[in-house]
Design a protein around this nucleic acid. Structure first.
Length: 484
DNA sequence: TGAAATGTTGGGGCG
DNA sequence: ACGCCCCAACATTTC
């Protein structure tokens, strides 16, 4: 007699076992019917998807490794629909459970998969695992999607505060209900890790991919940095942020867990319910807002939300783009940020705004090219957040920074890295400059440069462009499209 | 989740 | 003593 048909749980951007509604439901359903659950991860880089960036591949490798230490996991590579069909055939499975993704191509693919499974009489169930509120659940009074953060967040908080149970995380699943893996591909065969050169070696001390690392970052943040978060989150030199972004992207932790842990710390008196905790929750809110926007405006990854920007006179500036990517623009705060990104797979958010403003406004490079670079190099590369943030900086997005709001890199550096500690860490060739000149070596007197062992144009680049000139140029370009 | 230009005010130097 | 000017310091406007 054959054993009952198993269910398949399809892991995607939800690589965790706690607060896992889809897996919890699959296991509960299986238990009732005497089934077991096959845990499956599919590496789907087929046409139509956006292939993972290099940094994301590194993270995925380690996150899957961490998950496989806890549960049996079957690995397969290929177009998801085809892989699922194969696995269903092999295992005689009676259904598939998964957590929703919201990238336009994922929505389209998953819809087809669901329809096809259902048509064949199989169970196909999807769940919300990664958002506090589904993108279609919030609408303005006139029934349109929100395009401004503040009212969006006000409405979202009202929903959350009125129904505290929606942020109550589920307990960890019991892996006993999981089936042994089917014939699985080897993770090492996927070659997710870089070799020759191993440019990810320097990532290791900064990150612990997987559910345990995510929890540790959250606990550490709630114990320390949250107390002065509102102001200190702007300082890139210290550890003033949660560093949860890659964990969130891969679903190693859910926003519900973050929210609940914060509320619990407040109730216990370990955290004050003040502007600092509100600011932290609002940052979670920006992620929700990005998903809301991406869902309702699926062209966002390619096209400016503000149609006027279609006519913006971007420059074909390959040389500038390359210097920016390598952290060789001659503006210390920009170069420090780009090198932090390269070395650690992450960049402080204040600095992300500065480098993005520099690329888009000072160099007039199309924001899509910056978005591409971030997609490839960020461990937390996330379509919704990345695209919305780039459009925000470029001035063409929702609730965007006005185009004429141009960051002055030297002033931003002086304001948020007054002691130059961040610059000296990532741009060591100018470390000997005194604080007064560390953010503007191009204005330092000759003898100061010499004493610091700097020869501009040799040991550190001249500025790629003069900021004051670039600012005027950007404003003129903006004026061109303003009336269009 | 700006910066620069322009306007206003008031203290102090100085004839 | 008074008016004039300079210029921080701060506020407002503009991009």
């Amino acid at each position: 007699m054959s054993s009952p048909a198993p269910l398949i749980f399809w892991f995607r951007q939800d690589l965790r076992l706690t607060d896992q509604p889809a897996l919890t439901a699959a296991l509960a359903h299986a238990q009732q019917t005497g089934q077991r659950v096959i845990a499956l991860y599919i590496l789907d880089e087929s046409k139509g998807t956006r292939p993972l960036g290099g940094a994301s591949r590194w993270w995925l490798h380690h996150s899957l490794t961490s998950l496989m230490q806890k549960i049996p996991l079957t690995l397969r590579k290929g177009p998801a629909a085809q892989v699922l069909a194969d696995v269903i055939k092999q295992s005689n499975a009676s259904g598939v459970f998964w957590s929703r993704c919201y990238e336009p191509y994922a929505i389209e693919r998953d819809k087809e998969i669901k329809a096809s499974l259902t048509a064949r009489g199989l169970l196909a169930e999807s769940f919300n695992s990664s958002l506090l509120i589904e993108p279609w659940e919030l609408k303005t009074k006139t029934g349109t999607p929100y395009q401004v953060f503040t009212p969006f967040w006000k409405a979202a908080r009202a929903v959350i505060d009125a129904a505290p149970t929606i942020i109550k995380p589920l307990p960890a699943v019991d892996p006993a209900g999981l089936a042994p893996p089917l014939a699985s591909e080897q993770l090492s065969d996927w070659q997710l890790l870089p070799t020759s050169p191993d440019w990810a070696k320097s990532f290791t001390p900064h990150w612990q991919p997987g559910e345990d690392g995510a929890r540790q970052n959250l606990i550490r943040f709630l114990d320390h940095a949250i107390h002065d978060y509102k102001e200190d989150r702007n300082l890139p030199a210290g550890q003033h942020t949660s560093r949860l972004s890659p964990h969130l992207h891969f679903g190693e932790i859910s926003p519900r867990q973050i929210w609940y842990a914060t509320q619990t710390a407040i109730t216990a008196g370990r955290v004050q319910p003040d502007a600092n905790s509100d600011q932290f929750l609002a940052e979670v809110g920006w992620r929700e807002f990005s998903y809301h926007l991406l869902y309702h405006f699926p062209t966002l990854p390619h096209a400016p939300l503000n149609a006027k920007f279609a006519a913006f006179p971007w420059l074909d500036n390959a040389k500038g783009l390359r210097a920016w990517q390598r952290g060789m623009t001659g503006y210390p705060i920009v170069d420090a940020g780009m090198r932090e990104l390269w070395q650690t797979g992450w960049m402080h958010n204040r600095v992300r705004m500065i480098v993005a403003s520099f690329l888009v406004k000072d160099l007039m490079v199309p924001w899509q090219q910056g978005e591409d670079w971030f997609w490839d190099t960020l461990l937390d590369a996330d379509l919704a957040s990345n695209v919305c943030s780039w459009q925000w900086v470029a001035g063409c997005g929702a609730d965007a920074a006005p185009y004429f709001r141009v960051f002055n890199p030297a002033l931003q550096g002086e304001k948020f890295d007054a002691s130059g500690a961040y610059i000296r860490r990532y741009v060591p060739e100018i470390a000997e400059l005194p604080d007064k000149w560390i953010h503007r070596p191009f204005e330092a007197p000759k003898d100061v440069l010499q004493a610091a062992g700097i020869k501009l144009g040799t040991t550190y680049p001249h500025p790629l462009v003069d900021h004051s000139f670039a600012r005027d140029r950007a404003l003129a370009a903006f004026a061109e499209i303003k009336g269009s």
